[in-house]
Design a protein around this nucleic acid. Structure first.
Length: 495
RNA sequence: GGGGAUAUCGUCUAGAGGUUAGGACGAGGGAUUUUCAGUCCUUAAGCCGGGGUUCGAUUCCCCGUAUCCCUACCA
């Protein structure tokens, strides 16, 4: 039997990195085993503020960015569509009715107010919360229905609830954690169909997974606690449950759910900051999965597919380490062909307004010279913006200059002589290239009886306004003779 | 309150009934050097606690503790 797995996001906003990680696990598993990767949109919560259709685009883009594109989804369709749950409403009603007919579910007329009051009372008394199953018996249900009809003056709305078995146990077979046994008495009569006609997760998932032929369900650990209800629904239909796996959750540094407080959490934010897809994928995979005793962390996609197995999924939550992601991204940047990084950095520079769109010939030439010089000190692509600023922006002295750098290096007593000599040399030098420039400056340092560093640092500050950056001679080369001379002149005049 | 899961360096993790408990990020130190970075070398840092089982447990079992998840007409 071919493997069929699904990624089932709900459009409640831009997808969370943890969410994408389960998509990656699903994708890797299906690539490894052979089969189909399905994505299904779980848009059954129509509560204002929670249903955010704008998020759908981000979900699609994120999957494309990672390269984990589903074989069947709402974008391309497939043999078991539709892949959007709001387009499958009649199906859920049909199956809910089947459950009612077989005695595995029942209509419930209780008002939200009654439910809420009941819950509060239970909490106040310190007893377990849950539905009192008032509508589970025919008598109780009719009584409630009549009462509600009198209150409302018309036929009252109802939900459909699962008639959870009152005794016995439900066993959840988790491929990683093993069999987990739940006492049915501790499980509530879960609502399956809401008054608005939309199903809840439990019904929709059970029906869709079955109809779509899903063989393995890989979903976040937050579903484990309610897995008994999920399995109970499937059992009520008489179907075989799919194999289940619950990868652990991703937490923030304080061991709470990863949220805004900790930093970026939405996948698209990382994309914008300039994280490469292979870095993001590699990092996310390793957050809760390991290749075993192989002491490696950096894997290509084929290597990951080859090594991936459900057994390697860990059982405890993982804290999202932003530093490690950065490190990994830096590694991938340095492994990439420079042309690719140049292209991506140009996009970053355009976004920041340092380069026009489309870029001019001059901007392009400068970018092609500068970006390769910065690649080795970049961890995230957006870092190119502050790095490139002194090269693409006009630099005015002293406003654009780093104050500490100026104090330290532009107030040495030989500064005027140095700058004058450099202007002289740079004006005359034939080859404006790093090696020639270096030779000339080394000679100058000797002539002036200065240490090399004593020349390098003031020059760097005078020309770029800061103490950090690429090697000085590469920087001068990238910047060009004209701009270099112009900056030296203006600093000399102002000092 | 009820239910479930989990527990190895600060973090991600490997590991086996007997190991010097391994790797990576981060941190410290050193080398390279023209600053930052990178690269290379190097140091420190860990088996939650208590009972069992066993010749021997960090590893298996139980209890405790802690943490996380569920306990919605959210997913």
């Amino acid at each position: 039997m071919p493997v069929r797995v699904r990624y089932a996001p709900s459009p409640t906003g831009s997808p969370h990195v943890g969410n994408l990680r389960t998509a990656i696990y699903n994708w890797l598993f299906v690539k490894k085993m052979g089969g189909q990767f399905i994505a299904r949109l779980e848009d059954t919560d129509r509560t204002p503020g929670r249903y955010m259709p704008e998020g759908i685009w981000d979900i699609e883009e994120s999957l494309r960015y990672l390269g984990t594109i589903p074989d069947e989804w709402w974008v391309s369709g497939g043999s078991s569509g539709p892949y959007i749950q709001s387009e499958r409403l009649p199906l859920y009603k049909e199956y809910a009715d089947k459950l009612i007919a077989s005695g595995h579910a029942y209509r419930c007329y209780c008002s939200r107010e009654r439910l809420e009051a009941m819950r509060q009372e239970q909490q106040a008394k310190g007893i377990p919360t849950g539905y009192d199953r008032c509508c589970r018996s025919d008598d109780g249900r009719e009584e409630m229905r009549t009462k509600r009809r009198e209150e409302l003056g018309h036929e009252p709305p109802c939900v459909v609830r699962l008639a959870m078995p009152l005794e016995g146990q439900t066993v959840v077979h988790d491929l990683v954690k093993g069999d987990i046994v739940y006492d049915n008495r501790t499980q509530d009569d879960q609502v399956l169909l809401k008054t608005d006609g939309f199903p809840t997760y439990f019904l929709a998932c059970a029906v869709d997974d079955h109809l779509m032929g899903v063989t393995h369900v890989i979903r976040g650990d937050d579903w484990l606690s309610s897995a008994a209800k999920f399995v109970a629904v499937i059992n009520a239909f008489g179907w075989d449950p799919p194999a289940l796996v619950h990868p652990p959750l991703i937490m923030g540094s304080d061991r709470k759910k990863l949220s805004k407080r900790h930093g970026s959490t939405q996948f698209t934010e990382f994309v914008e900051q300039g994280y490469l897809p292979e870095a993001l994928l590699n990092f996310l995979v390793l957050l809760g999965w390991s290749a075993g005793d192989e002491n490696r962390e950096l894997f290509t996609l084929p290597e990951l597919i080859e090594r991936f197995s459900l057994e390697g999924i860990s059982e405890h939550p993982a804290i999202f380490d932003y530093d490690k992601l950065k490190w990994m991204n830096g590694m991938y940047i340095r492994q990439s062909p420079p042309g690719r990084i140049i292209g991506l950095c140009i996009q970053q520079l355009q976004k920041a307004g340092l380069i026009s769109n489309p870029p001019s010939e001059i901007e392009l030439e400068l970018a092609r010279k500068l970006i390769p010089l910065e690649i080795e000190r970049m961890k995230v692509l957006s870092e190119i913006v502050p790095m490139a600023e002194p090269f693409f922006h006009e630099l005015r002295f002293p406003e654009g200059y780093d104050e500490k750098a100026v104090t330290k290096w532009l107030h040495v007593e030989y500064i005027h002589a140095l700058l004058r000599n450099e202007i002289d040399i740079f004006t005359k030098i034939e080859n404006w290239e790093p090696t020639s420039l270096e030779t000339a400056i080394r000679t100058l340092a000797e002539d002036m009886q200065l240490k090399f560093a004593g020349v390098i640092h003031p020059t760097r500050v005078a020309v770029t306004g800061r103490t950090v950056g690429p090697g000085l001679f590469e920087a001068l080369w990238a910047l060009g003779r004209e701009t270099t001379l112009q900056r030296l002149h203006s600093v000399l005049e102002a000092l």
